[in-house]
Nucleic acid binder design. Sequence first.
DNA 1: GAACTTTATTAGACTGGTCTAAAAATGAAG
DNA 2: CTTCATTTTTAGACCAGTCTAATAAAGTTC
Lengths: 259, 259
Amino acid sequence: MATESQKKATVSSTVEDYLKVVLKIEDMKQRASTSRVARHLDVADATVTDMLRKLKKAGLLEYKPYYGAALTPKGRRMAVRILRRHRLLEMFLHQVLGYGWEQVHQEAERLEHAVSDLFISRIDALLDFPAQDPHGETIPDARGFRQVEDDLCLAEAEPGSYSVRKVTNSDPEFLAYLDKVGLRPATRFCLQERTPFQGPLKLLPQSGREPVYLGLEASGSIFVLPLKDRPRAPESDPRAPASRMAGDHAGRSGDEKAG
Amino acid sequence: MATESQKKATVSSTVEDYLKVVLKIEDMKQRASTSRVARHLDVADATVTDMLRKLKKAGLLEYKPYYGAALTPKGRRMAVRILRRHRLLEMFLHQVLGYGWEQVHQEAERLEHAVSDLFISRIDALLDFPAQDPHGETIPDARGFRQVEDDLCLAEAEPGSYSVRKVTNSDPEFLAYLDKVGLRPATRFCLQERTPFQGPLKLLPQSGREPVYLGLEASGSIFVLPLKDRPRAPESDPRAPASRMAGDHAGRSGDEKAG
DNA sequence: GAACTTTATTAGACTGGTCTAAAAATGAAG
DNA sequence: CTTCATTTTTAGACCAGTCTAATAAAGTTC
Ligand SMILES: [Mn+2]
Ligand SMILES: [Mn+2]
Ligand SMILES: [Mn+2]
Ligand SMILES: [Mn+2]
């Protein structure tokens, strides 16, 4: 066993979705507990317990009973791969097939498991290697590197000028609404005021239309980029303005114990 | 139960593949026997017996033990739908993503189950409603109608001038070979002679290169269109030159008993 | 039509993914 | 530290899809 050739290790689409959910939870700096994973996947807790044990046995994550799971480098690699596929597919559906940004997620959720690597590399090239998906989320590159930006959540933003960076919510209704009021990624707006006692936010989208009132709940899934006050070039999307490489490509060994 | 609204009747990708295989066998005017279906799907005979019973119960096919299966109108409708998806996807992969004609089948075999109706209608429009797939097979239209042409199999053709109409073989090696010697759909060639005692066929592709010798086995998957001898416009593909509508859209009732 | 071959069905088992209901561990509060 | 509520695991079941081995029906040959 000298050159330990990396074997295919094909997993089911179910497993891919579990890994992706654990990654998502970890990205939110939360503990990947049984119930949290179950909620994200809409399955029973007992189902998750079973699956986490299986995934642990497969070396895709650490799992401590009554505590939760954490991806291993191998598991993270797989999860990031699916994330990349998902987001590239969303971009493809949006740009090439003319899907609305509220339609892309559902379709990508299935296709991410079905397309080949060739398909992915072809659409990547066709789209000219996009850095973001239609919701403003960063697309991991082919090697699994992820741009990580310090997100400013609109729910915590002070009054001022912003541009929409990303929207982390895939509810079609909600996205269609944002679209209608003019809050798409890369659009600008003014946060005029935060009404007291957890009240709604008053926004003025760039398009100068009516002011928009947004509940705290909703604003929690909108992430923004503060603008250096004086408004400049209109409409160009904000590629990589404040970001660095993440160290989670998980190269050779695995030193991410529970600790 | 007045207006009996047609319900979704979602089936698994496994079921879709079974239906497609039965359709294919019926199209070849053969009896869809247990073992034949099993061979096409590469599963054990016993597995097919089980499944055919299930599909019968679901109203998708007739099944007589020790005899075989025959699609019901409902089953045929579903099978044709998948066939359409498969072929449209192949065309899309070929035309938009630059896949070779020997690469498209495998990918389409998975995607046909995963894409939405919206995806299909978008690529249909993007491709300008193609009538054939990259192998020259007819693509059923959105209503499930199929162009049926009287096929002339190269294995039974007399010496003369022909153009390649379709190739009913998805072995990548074989297709790559045909490509190399210049035998793609819509290309022309001369069948110079049939060597006796089931010997190979001697062909002269239009490109005027070397003569090609083709075994009977191989020529059995190539279907051709006889040319009215005098060569005309070069290269244009032969859309619907001798065809009529098939009556297998299976409209209202089902009168296709075993008989 | 008896014997043999081929084809098909039955029987029984397994895997992956899921569920519900019951039991156990954990954590919060008194 | 005991009690109660919450979270998690265990136990037992189910369904879809598959397999192998054994049996039975159909077809073929003399
Ligand atoms: Mn998405
Ligand atoms: Mn998915
Ligand atoms: Mn094909
Ligand atoms: Mn298929």
